[in-house]
Design a protein around this nucleic acid. Structure first.
Ligand code: SF4
Ligand code: SF4
Lengths: 138, 138
DNA sequence: CGATAATACGATTATTTTAGTCGCATTTTA
DNA sequence: TAAAATGCGACTAAAATAATCGTATTATCG
């Protein structure tokens, strides 16, 4: 509980890798080898990030992935939402709107949880890919 | 991902319930009925909280549970640690010391993750049972 | 043109974690 | 001494996560 999924952790590692490596495209193979991440598993995440506009891809032989925008414009929160589609400490703070709790009318924990959720979210919104490596480098 | 387990959510609900109800002991049955939580499942958590010094229990017929200390001295973080034994966004921030990642030497994400982890933890450390209901009451 | 190196994508399986249940023992009180 | 409660350990069920497989498509380069 309160864990980042491997999907997200790998994606963040990959984005950091791509961000650090300046030259044009990084291939999924290169990333997975370098970071010791399962290739197929990573690939799917990269494809998702591409569809969500966080990465750009180039098909074919000299292909690969690159960031779709500056790393300081990519937040961890965006990555989480792109890959998980939602995020929520409890049912009533899930973003997928059909996932609401049946105790929601009477529950005294609902509001306090919403507050906590906002605080958590703001942490991930504040953190960008650039900051991850940047704090040492810059 | 990034979810509170039911175990913890139920426990927080229960602590809130016990805190709101002033008269001596609350029974597990009473709590589980009132909050619509599986009795057996809740009981185990209450027993754990008791062993960890967050609740006090009274055996036998007029028995039940009460807070071991003032609700403003019980943090959500304590409850999480009591029930989960650990908490960590990623392997390298787990508190169970044997759960360390084999990439830990080279990983560029380790330090940034530790920072995030601290921020998350501090949110849960700052939040007490008293605050949950208290914000309206006090 | 055709081999090759790459992404794209859906389906499936395996593993782990979470959630919930069961049965029985113990304690206390009326 | 019956009843109402907690205490505990083992077990099972369900869901989420992690990983794999198979195949199609696309682009480059010789
Ligand atoms: S409404 Fe209450 S019980 Fe339902 S998910 Fe939110 S906090 Fe949990
Ligand atoms: S060391 Fe890096 S890869 Fe290992 S758990 Fe920590 S962040 Fe993840």
């Amino acid at each position: 509980m309160l864990r980042l999924s491997k999907k997200v952790e790998y994606a963040i590692l990959a984005l950091q890798f791509i961000s650090n490596k300046d030259d044009k495209f990084a291939t999924a193979k290169e990333i997975s080898d370098s970071l010791e991440i399962p290739f197929e598993f990573l690939s799917k995440s990269l494809q998702t990030l591409m569809k969500k506009g966080i990465l750009e891809s180039q098909l074919g032989v000299r292909g690969g992935y690159q960031l779709a925008r500056s790393p300081n414009k990519i937040t961890i929160q965006e990555v989480i939402v792109a890959l998980e589609g939602r995020s929520g400490l409890v049912d009533c703070t899930y973003k997928k709107s059909n996932e609401t709790c049946d105790k929601i009318e009477t529950c005294l924990l609902k509001n306090p949880m919403a507050v906590l959720q906002n605080r958590i979210n703001s942490i991930f919104k504040q953190t960008t890919i650039a900051q991850l490596s940047g704090e040492v480098k810059n």
